[in-house]
Amino acid sequence: MKPKARSLHYGVLAEFDTPQQLVDAARATHDAGFRKYDAYTPFPIEELADAMHDHQNPIAKIVLLAGFTGACIGFGMQTFANLVHYPMNIAGRPNFAWPMFIPVTFECIVAFAAFTGVLSMLALNGLPTPYHPLFNCPNFSQATRNKFFLCIEATDPKFELAETRKFLEQLNPREISDVEN
């Protein structure tokens, strides 16, 4: 089977020295109408999400839903076990002793919420991704040290290799490189 034709380039990568320069560049990129772009930093920068208009993410809702599921499963399991599956009379104590079910229910909430949350974070981020075109750029390894990168991707409708390069040059980056696919 022939692989789907991919464009020659993944995008254009610009390298900056400080978080402030990167935030300004990201804001300018968004204002210029680009949408398929991303910034790469060694640590999270709160202001960057604002500059990139990246405000929403569904993780909190997913965690809430998972926690609710955990509560239903935990409490339901104990109720089913004690009332339906194997009722056991221990010195006449009630079978539906719901206060005794709370600790296990609580642990189920936490376990479901935490695991679902982490797995959904990884899934939404597309991790694990052992190979990525950006890793081919020799300088990109500094993205986990002290350099700040902005990449405008070729899938953006406004992307035009020469034009995009020119646009990024206006932002005074330290270096610009084309990322090949």
């Binding site: 790469y40 930093t41 999270p44 694990p128 986990t144």
Partner: peptide, 16 residues
Amino acid sequence: LGWRGSARHWHRYETI
């Protein structure tokens, strides 16, 4: 896991 410090990843990461 191929972490590359993407700002969009950081955002979800910080939330979780």
